[in-house]
Design a binder for these strands. Structure first.
Lengths: 339, 339
DNA sequence: CTGAAAGCGCTAACAT
DNA sequence: ATGTTAGCGCTTTCAG
C-alpha cells in the first residue's frame, strides 16, 4: 500500500507538505503542489481513512439510523435516505446505514466511526434520545419527541397539514370527513408524526364542528379495504376522505370504486404523501406533499452546522403545501327535496 | 475520551491484556477478565474505530454501492439493502451506503474505510468492474456482467425465470403471450438482468413456436397503460401476459380492467417480482418470486468468505420458483365455431 | 513557504 | 497468563 511517505519521497518533499497540499490548510508554492499532485497520480495514492480518523478525529462519515420496519412504507424511507445521502455527498460525507432499532446500535457511533448522527422514525419517548445526548457527536432527529430539549429536530408539520386538509375539504363544502391514518403498529409505537397528525385533525374538526372519524389502516390490500369499510360504516354519508398512508392509497381508491363511489365525483380524496405517489395513482390525487427528500437534506444541513461549530438546539417544522389534483371537488349542496 | 490505557490502569493490567480480553485472541484468567470488564463498564469505554482500523487493517464495515435511480423500483432495492444490512449485522459488520453511479465513488473503498464491497445494478460492460479488480478488498457483484472473469457474482436466474414463465403459460394453453419488461432506461444501460430476461423469453418462445411480443414499460401509470395498449394492439388476441416491472404491475392490472379484460378469467397475468408485491395486488398475482432479500444475504455471505480467506471466483444464480395465485388459469380451447 | 517530530489509540508480535 | 514495545499512516504543532 502506498503511504504519504512514498508520495513525499517521490515528490522530494516532506510528508507534512503532502498532507497540507491535500488539505489546503496552508499555502503551497505552485511548483511544489504540482510535483505533489504528480506523485500522487503516479503512485495512485489514497489516504488511509483510519489513520486520518485517528490523527484528526474526523471521519467524513455520517450515520443514519433508519429502522427498516415492515409497516412503514419503504418508498418514503428511501426518499429520506436519498435526501440524506445526496446532500451528504455534496459535502464530501458518506453515510453509514444503521438499521438496528435500539440504542445498542449506536455503539459504532460511540466508537468515533462517524462525525454525526441522524435518527429517523423517532418515537414520543424514544429510548435512544438519552443515549445520543451523551455522545460527542451531534445528532439530528427526524421527528419530534415529546421532550426535545437539548436536541435538534426536523420534520414535516403534520399538525398543520392535518388542519389544512380538514380546512380544505371543509372549504369545498364537505362536512362528512374521515381520516385513514398510519398502520396500527405505528400508532402503538407512538411514532411522533402519527400523534401530531391526529392532534391537528381532531383540533380542526372541533373548530369546524365536525365529527372526527379516524381509522388506523394496515398496509396490505385487505387491511386497507377493511379500514375503508369501517369508515363507511361509521359514516355512511362520507364525502371527504383524508388518507395518510402511502401503501394503502391505491387500495383505498380502488376500494371506493368497488363501493360504487367515484373519486373526484362522489367522494373527495386528499392524501398526505410525497407528490410522486399522489401523481402516480390512476386518478391523480390532491395531496399535501410530504417533502421527504427535503427533510433528509435539511437534516444533513443542520447536522453539518452543528459539526462545524456549537449551535443552539433548534426545531424546524416544514410547512405543508397543498396541490389540487383531480380527486377533490366542491360539493354541491343537495337539491332541496320537496316538502 | 477514555482510552484503552485508562481501562488498563483502572483494571491494574496492561493495555494489551485489555485488547486481548476484548478480542478473545488469547486466554485470559477469569479474574482478570472480570476486572477488565468492570473497568470497561465503569468507564463506559468504547474502542476507537479509527485506531483499530489503523492497527489491524480491518474496519468491520462493508460498502454497498446501490445507485438510487428513479427508474428502478425502490421497494426492490430496499429489499436487497435490507438483506445485506441484516446479514452484515449478524456478523458484526455495518454498511456504508454508496450511491454514486461511477467508479469515482469507490475512493472511500480504496481508502481502506471498508473491508469489502458489494455492487448492485451491474451493467453488461460495467465501468466499475476494472477498478474493483484493482482493490485490495474483495468485491461481490449483484448481477452478471458480460465478462465476469476474476470476480464473483450472485443474481436471480432471470433467463431461467423467463423460460419458466413462458412454459407455465404455454402449459395452461395460452399461445398469445406478451412480455412487459423493465423501463427503457434500464434497457439502455444494459442492466444485466434485463438482457438475460429477454434472452430467455425469446428462446423459450422460439422453442414453443410462439411470437415473442416484448414491450419496455415505464414506471408511471400513464407509461404502463401505454405499454399495455401497445401490446394489445400488436397482439389483440392476447391471453397471457408476463410482467417484470413492480412499479407498473398495479397499473397494468387496472388497465386491463379498463379494457374490459378480467385478470384471471380472460387474461392470465404472471409477474416476476418479490412475493409480497404479487400478494398485495387487488387480485393476487401468480408470480415467479424475485428473492431480493436472499440475494442480498447471499452476497454478504460470499463476501465474508472471501474476506476470511482467498477463494476462487464463483457465480451463483438463484433458481426461480413459481407461486400460483389467482391471476392465471387454464385456457379453454375455443368452442369449435360451425363451418 | 517548508521540515521535523510528536502523537492519535489500538493491535500483535515478541518476551517472559 | 500477562507485560513490553514497535509500529499502523496521518495531522498538526513547533521551528525555521
Amino acid at each position: 500500500m502506498t503511504t504519504i511517505d512514498d508520495v513525499a519521497r517521490r515528490a522530494g518533499v516532506s510528508a507534512s507538505t503532502v498532507s497540507y497540499a491535500l488539505s489546503g490548510k496552508r499555502t503551497i508554492s505552485a511548483a511544489t503542489r504540482l510535483r505533489v499532485e504528480k506523485a500522487i497520480a503516479d503512485l495512485g495514492y489514497t489516504p488511509h481513512a483510519g489513520a486520518r480518523a485517528l490523527a484528526s478525529a474526523r471521519t467524513n462519515v455520517l450515520a443514519l439510523m433508519a429502522p427498516l420496519r415492515p409497516d412503514v412504507d419503504v418508498s418514503v424511507i428511501m426518499q429520506f435516505v436519498t435526501g440524506v445521502v445526496t446532500k451528504a455527498r455534496s459535502h464530501d460525507y458518506d453515510v453509514l446505514l444503521l438499521t438496528q432499532e435500539d440504542a445498542a446500535g449506536l455503539s459504532r457511533v460511540a466508537s468515533g466511526m462517524v462525525d454525526g448522527l441522524i435518527l429517523m422514525d423517532v418515537e414520543a419517548q424514544d429510548p435512544r434520545i438519552p443515549v445520543v445526548t451523551t455522545l460527542r457527536q451531534p445528532t439530528i432527529l427526524i421527528g419530534l419527541p415529546e421532550d426535545s430539549r437539548g436536541i435538534s429536530c426536523v420534520d414535516f408539520d403534520f399538525d398543520a397539514a392535518a388542519r389544512m386538509a380538514v380546512r380544505h375539504l371543509r372549504g369545498l363544502g364537505h362536512r362528512n370527513l374521515a381520516l385513514l391514518g398510519p398502520p396500527p403498529a405505528v400508532l402503538e409505537r407512538h411514532t411522533t408524526y402519527a400523534d401530531r397528525l391526529f392532534t391537528g385533525y381532531r383540533a380542526q374538526c372541533a373548530a369546524d364542528g365536525l365529527e372526527p372519524v379516524i381509522e388506523a389502516t394496515g398496509t396490505s390490500h385487505a387491511a386497507a379495504l377493511a379500514a375503508l369499510d369501517a369508515v363507511l360504516t361509521r359514516s355512511p354519508g362520507l364525502t371527504g376522505l383524508v388518507v395518510h398512508n402511502e401503501a394503502a392509497l391505491a387500495s383505498v381508491v380502488s376500494g371506493l370504486r368497488d363501493h360504487g363511489r367515484h373519486v373526484g365525483e362522489d367522494v373527495a380524496v386528499l392524501a398526505l404523501c410525497p407528490a410522486y405517489v399522489a401523481e402516480s395513482q390512476p386518478i391523480p390525487i390532491t395531496s399535501i406533499d410530504i417533502p421527504a427528500l427535503t427533510i433528509g437534506e435539511v437534516a444533513v444541513e443542520m447536522l453539518l452546522e452543528r459539526m462545524a461549530a456549537p449551535h443552539a438546539t433548534e426545531t424546524r417544522l416544514l410547512a405543508p403545501t397543498l396541490h389540487e389534483r383531480q380527486s377533490t371537488f366542491p360539493l354541491q349542496p343537495p337539491a332541496p327535496t320537496g316538502r
